[in-house]
C-alpha cells in the first residue's frame, strides 16, 4: 500500500516500549522536516518514569503553515513497535491512514491494510544490532510516505548518529527504504 500525504497538516505517531528509541526517532524525523525540508513541526512525547519498558509514544506534526495544537489529533501514520501500542492507538488512525507494524512484535492487527515489516529482525540482520530498529522504522516510514525527503532523513539520521556509528545507521535506514520499496511494488 502506498500513501503519499499531501494535506497541510500531517500527523505521525511512533509508539512502542520505552527503550526502543521511538522518541529519538520522532526527534530525528522532526529535524529532517524542520531543518532540512524547512517545514514547521511540533514534536511531543508521552512516556513513563522508567528508563526502559512501559509504554512510550512520540508524535510529530508537520505542516507548511502554522501548527496550533501541537499533538496528534487523528494520526495519518502510526508506527506500532509493540502489541500494546497497536492496540492502544490503531483506533485513532484517520480513515485511510497508514498503519505500519513490526511484524514480529505485533501479532493481532486490527486492519488487513496494515503494512507488516519485521523491523527489529531487519535491524539485527543488517546491522547486527536490534537497537537500530528505530532507524529502520524511519526508513520504512519515509520510504512509504515521503513525509520528508529521503535525503533529508538521511542527513538528520547522520547528524544524530554518534561518531563511528554513521555507517551502521545509514545501513539501517537503507534497509527501511528497501523494505518500503518492496511493499510499494
Amino acid at each position: 500500500m502506498t500513501k503519499t500525504i499531501q494535506n497541510d497538516r500531517t500527523e505521525i505517531r511512533l509508539a512502542g516500549e520505552g527503550g526502543q528509541g521511538m522518541i529519538l526517532a520522532a526527534i530525528i524525523l522532526a529535524e529532517a522536516a524542520a531543518i532540512y525540508d524547512g517545514k514547521n513541526v511540533t514534536q511531543t512525547q508521552v512516556y513513563g518514569p522508567e528508563a526502559r519498558g512501559g509504554a512510550s509514544k512520540a508524535e510529530v506534526v508537520i505542516s507548511n503553515g502554522q501548527i496550533d495544537h501541537p499533538e496528534v489529533i487523528n494520526a495519518d501514520v502510526l508506527v506500532a513497535m509493540s502489541q500494546e501500542a497497536c492496540d492502544k492507538y490503531a483506533g485513532n488512525l484517520k480513515k485511510g491512514g497508514l498503519l505500519i507494524v513490526d511484524e514480529e512484535k505485533v501479532g493481532r492487527i486490527p486492519s488487513n491494510k496494515a503494512v507488516k515489516i519485521p523491523i527489529t529482525q531487519l535491524a539485527e540482520a543488517r546491522t547486527g544490532r536490534t537497537i537500530t530498529a528505530n532507524v529502520v522504522a524511519l526508513g520504512v516510514l519515509v520510504g512509504l510516505t515521503d513525509v520528508v525527503s529521503r535525503m533529508s532523513i538521511e542527513k538528520a539520521v547522520l547528524a544524530r548518529a554518534p561518531k563511528g556509528t554513521e555507517d551502521m545507521n545509514r545501513t539501517a535506514l537503507l534497509a527501511g527504504f528497501e523494505a518500503a520499496d518492496m511493499v510499494k511494488r
Binding site: I27, A34, N40, V41, T42, T44, Q45, I67
Partner: peptide, 9 residues
C-alpha cells in the same frame, strides 16, 4: 509540561 518538553523550530 507540554511547552517545556515540546520541540519546535
Amino acid at each position: 509540561e507540554v511547552i517545556g518538553h515540546m520541540r519546535e523550530k
